[in-house]
């Protein structure tokens, strides 16, 4: 869908590559990009499924308005990918419906709700 302008490196020699993972796979992100831009740079169009019908969605507005770019960042779900700059070592996961939420919110005194009958 998107490609990087070829001559950027020449203009910005100090633009570093950041080591991140996307759904567990390593990726070299460009410092200065947002998480959503990083997903596009990695060739991904979708970033989550909806909690209502499970439909695939990707970033839509890139300016913090539509909330379609919600992803899990370092275990925290519902992060607006288009508003958060990518950082060194960041773990980015595409968000699956509402399911990711509790896992990231952490155990309640050692128990996650899913672990309960």
């Amino acid at each position: 869908m998107f490609k990087r302008l070829p001559d950027l490196a020449a203009f910005h020699p100090d633009a570093r590559a950041l080591a991140v993972t996307i759904d567990g796979k390593p990726f070299a992100a460009r410092a200065g990009d947002t998480v959503a831009a990083t997903l596009f740079a990695a060739g991904l169009a979708d970033c989550r499924t909806t909690p209502v019908l499970g439909s695939a969605r990707g970033p839509f507005c890139m300016m913090g308005v539509c909330f379609d770019c919600l992803v899990v960042i370092d275990g925290q779900p519902n992060q607006q990918g288009c508003m958060i700059p990518v950082g060194e070592g960041m773990r980015i996961q595409r968000q699956q419906g509402a399911r990711a939420v509790a896992a990231a919110a952490g155990p309640a005194d050692g128990m996650t709700p899913e672990a309960q009958p």
Binding site: Q76, P77, N78, V101, A102, A104, A105, G106, P107, A108, D109, T112, P113
Partner: peptide, 9 residues
């Protein structure tokens, strides 16, 4: 009361 709610949005 509900530690699970810490990160709730």
């Amino acid at each position: 009361l509900f530690p699970v709610m810490r990160g709730a949005v």
